[in-house]
């Protein structure tokens, strides 16, 4: 069994390399990936499960995490996690002429997403958009409601880090640009704000 050693590799390299290996693997085959942090493990899990593969992992005695991704039968992903509506939000203000109006409009926009049927498949936050998914945001209740309806909510880890908000993420998961681009590229419909 081949093990991809991704210890010491920066985000999103483990996901990129694992995805390449999965592309070359046969149905039923397991691709193993060794990583040294839990965020990398989470990103691998999101990617694998999003593509319909089986995911498992174990924390070894040396502290490293060995992830196993078993390729879905038939050689094709069991489902496409990008299908449906994807909403990508890069700021906490809707429109640019007036910031106060824009912030109210953004809250109104996110509330309106809760009324959509079906709800968006993915809501992605990056750059200033991460202020909406973190503690203190007035949109948290609506985002939690969307998560409860099945929307996947994800915020850019680099952006959370830049704004010193990593510990304040209040809804959804941390993600990376590889996942954001991949999700946008596979979207059935995309709203990019």
């Amino acid at each position: 069994m081949t093990i991809l050693d991704m210890t010491g590799q920066p985000c999103p390299r483990p996901v990129i390399e694992a995805k390449k290996a999965l592309g070359a693997a046969r149905p039923g085959e397991t691709v193993s990936v060794l990583v040294d942090n839990d965020i990398a493990r989470q990103n691998l899990q999101k990617m694998a499960e999003g593509l319909g593969h089986e995911f498992s992992h174990e924390r070894r005695g040396d502290g490293l995490i060995l992830a196993g991704i078993k390729v879905a039968g038939g050689g094709r992903p069991a489902r496409d996690n990008g299908a449906g509506l994807v909403v990508a939000i890069g700021r906490d203000c809707l429109g640019g002429a007036n910031e106060e109006l824009g912030k109210s409009l953004m809250k109104s926009f996110i509330f309106s997403l809760t009324e959509l049927e079906p709800p968006p498949a993915h809501i992605l936050f990056f750059n200033g958009g991460v202020w909406l998914s973190t503690a203190g945001s007035a949109a948290l209740d609506d985002l939690a409601s969307l998560a409860g309806k099945g929307s996947r909510i994800a915020s850019c880890g680099a952006c959370l880090n830049y704004f010193k908000l990593t510990d304040k993420l209040a809804v959804g998961q941390v993600t990376n640009m590889f996942d954001i681009v991949s999700t946008m590229a596979q979207a059935g419909r995309l709203i990019n704000l």
């Binding site: 106060e100 109006l101 109210s104 809250k107 109104s108 509330f111 309106s112 007035a138 209740d141 609506d142």
Partner: peptide, 23 residues
């Protein structure tokens, strides 16, 4: 009008009321 709604939101937040905006 929208201006009163936004001004109202600001006043309520300043007054410690948990207020939400919707269309």
């Amino acid at each position: 009008n929208a201006g009163e709604a936004i001004g109202g939101e600001r006043r309520l937040l300043e007054g410690g009321v948990k207020v939400k905006v919707m269309p």
